[in-house]
């Protein structure tokens, strides 16, 4: 009675389990501004959904969760549309380049090795840096040695370099003045990495916005969700047309949970401080990194695997 058949996945699922799964990942999405694909896809595969269907249907549900999350963050004034659009254009361009890179790597025969290494290094590097940086921030705050504003210390080389770039523009919501080239460049970079790794890239985009574009954490979350919304709409349509891998029933069940989860997550996010948010996301990213590393180091139970997953 509590089961529903998924016609594209070719399997049935427990309705309550999928609703719960959607709710949990939606919660994380609302708190951190990540799509949650890097968590949801492996969980769905665990429940017997084919890897390709899991990834495509997850993109479909992220459309719902990120719409709900974007709307909530919009109301709080946390969405920088101008920045989001530039990152999005860069992301689409980078995604197209990334797909071509993967094609070349597959032809050379070492794609899987590079995908896995990129995954572990990105997750490990981003997670460790975020963890250390936010831990320092929390320690400083505890010692009471912080002023409420992040005081402009002596200007770093990176900051001077940013100022030297042409097409400087003011991003009001983010409170930064940077070159228009910068978000496009980083959007492209994340797009390339996301295409290589086969994920939406939210967990790379968030640190990029925080550390490289110097945006405040709360605006980062809203803007990231805004950008993810459009990326995943594109992926849903593309996957439906090219691979027939979007399971609409699965996506609807997941998004029923995730849209509500995203709303609750946004409210939790509002109560947490920037450094607390960053340290939690860092833990999540590091956890995924260790899981991936364990998969690479431990002897597999079966020496064959279906194509489509990492």
């Amino acid at each position: 009675m509590w089961h529903m058949y998924l016609p594209i996945a070719g399997n049935s699922v427990n309705i309550l389990t999928v609703l719960g799964l959607g709710g949990f990942v939606g919660l994380l999405s609302g708190i951190f501004g990540v799509g949650g694909g890097f968590l949801m896809t492996p969980l769905l595969i665990m429940f017997g959904i084919p890897p390709t269907v899991a990834a495509a249907s997850d993109s479909n549900q992220i459309v719902g969760a990120s719409t709900s999350g974007t709307l909530a963050h919009w109301r709080l004034g946390n969405v920088d549309v101008k920045m989001g659009i530039l990152l999005l254009i860069g992301g689409v361009f980078g995604g197209t380049v990334g797909v071509q890179i993967i094609k070349i790597l597959r032809a050379l025969g070492n794609a899987d090795f590079l995908i896995n290494i990129t995954y572990v290094l990105m997750l490990g590097g981003v997670g460790a840096y975020m963890f250390m940086e936010s831990l320092q921030g929390l320690k400083k705050e505890k010692a009471g040695a912080v002023s409420s504003q992040e005081a402009p210390k002596s200007e770093s080389t990176y900051a001077r370099m940013l100022k030297a770039l042409p097409f400087q523009s003011r991003f009001d919501k983010s409170g930064v003045e940077i070159s228009l080239i910068l978000p496009f460049f980083f959007g492209t970079l994340v797009g390339v990495l996301a295409a290589i790794m086969g994920v939406g890239g939210g967990f790379i985009m968030v640190p990029v916005m925080v550390y490289l574009l110097r945006m405040p954490m709360h605006v980062v979350v809203g803007t990231s969700l805004f950008q993810i919304l459009f990326t995943c709409m594109n992926v849903t349509i593309m996957q439906s047309v090219s691979n027939h891998t979007v399971d609409f029933v699965l996506a609807v069940l997941l998004l029923l949970g995730s849209t509500i989860g995203a709303q609750v997550g946004t409210k939790i996010s509002k109560r947490l401080k920037g450094d607390q948010l960053k340290i939690l996301l860092a833990c999540l990213v590091l956890l995924m990194c260790f899981k991936m590393l364990a998969g690479l180091l431990l002897t597999p139970h079966i020496m064959l695997a279906y194509k489509g997953g990492h």
Partner: peptide, 14 residues
Amino acid sequence: IAAGVALAAGLLIG
């Protein structure tokens, strides 16, 4: 339709 329904559901919940 799949993307549109997800978008509408997200808006409605929002």
